[in-house]
């Protein structure tokens, strides 16, 4: 295998047009094949590498599929209790004001159990970046209903589809925090196509650049697939995401430089 694919004769520095960032630890990811987490991990580390801020970066991993993010991201990291990442990030950014601090959270973590911490950190205008992966389901615990599960969408705790009369409505927390004075940049992106990946990277770069300005929270939501939780192939799940998730969670900037974007 190694010899067949390594092609040592073409592995010369002048031939390299793209390589994995060294800040992404060289070990198999714990995510399902087809999941968007790996792409976002790479983009995040590329931004930190390009900004050359690894010695000033502290990340907070959540509870959920990305609970082990610290195993893949080669920066100092602390694992939060479920939902509390913004509380940890608040203290860290206040105690080390010149550090770049980010939280990496899923929808259950950020928009259910951690709603209070999310809203209050955003409202205080803390100087850190929130990376919010929204796939509308609890992946790690096995496909239960999330705060962002769509109406009618099936999960293991809404097996006949989310009935909003009984189970309530999906929470658009990103729009909610965009309306708070403490957020400076709020955007919703995705990573299912090369174009979308490039836009997400730009958004992440902007979010980290904003930390140089100390003007408040930057939140980058990434609407992602969960092919395992949705019980689809990766390709099917991306199509389903475009057809169902995007109409409910429309992509694009919601707040830029502290001002809501007119739609």
């Amino acid at each position: 295998m190694e010899e067949k694919f390594a092609r040592p004769e073409i592995r010369k520095p002048e031939n390299i047009v793209y390589k994995r960032t060294d800040l992404l630890v060289d070990r198999p990811l714990s995510y399902c094949p087809g999941c968007g987490h790996g792409v976002v991990h790479r983009l995040l580390m590329e931004v930190i590498e390009e900004k050359d801020i690894v010695s000033k970066t502290i990340g907070i991993s959540p509870v959920g599929c990305s609970v082990l993010a610290y195993d893949f991201l080669d920066v100092d990291m602390q694992g939060a209790a479920h939902g509390r990442a913004p509380a940890l990030a608040t203290a860290i950014t206040r105690l080390w004001p010149d550090r770049y601090v980010f939280t990496y959270q899923g929808d259950g973590d950020l928009a259910a159990i951690g709603t209070a911490e999310t809203i209050h950190a955003c409202n205080r205008g803390e100087n850190f970046t929130i990376i919010f992966i929204n796939n509308g389901i609890y992946g790690m615990t096995g496909g239960q209903m999330a705060p962002t599960t769509l109406p009618g969408m099936r999960s293991s705790t809404s097996p006949y589809g989310r009935d909003v009369d009984i189970m309530g409505h999906p929470l658009k927390i990103t729009e909610l925090v965009a309306n708070l004075p403490g957020t400076y940049y709020v955007t919703r992106q995705s990573v299912q196509t090369p174009g979308a990946v490039r836009k997400t990277k730009k958004a992440l770069r902007k979010a980290f650049d904003n930390q140089d300005l100390n003007k408040g929270v930057s939140l980058v939501e990434v609407v992602s697939n969960c092919n395992s939780g949705w019980k689809m192939t990766p390709v099917q799940s991306n199509i389903w995401m475009e057809e169902n998730m995007f109409p409910y969670y429309p992509l694009g900037d919601i707040k830029v430089e502290g001002t809501l974007v007119e739609k």
Binding site: A80, L88, I92
Partner: peptide, 13 residues
């Protein structure tokens, strides 16, 4: 809940 988790984050630094 937030203050103890701020403490936890702060202690980590």
């Amino acid at each position: 809940v937030a203050s103890i988790n701020m403490l936890y984050g702060g202690a980590g630094t």
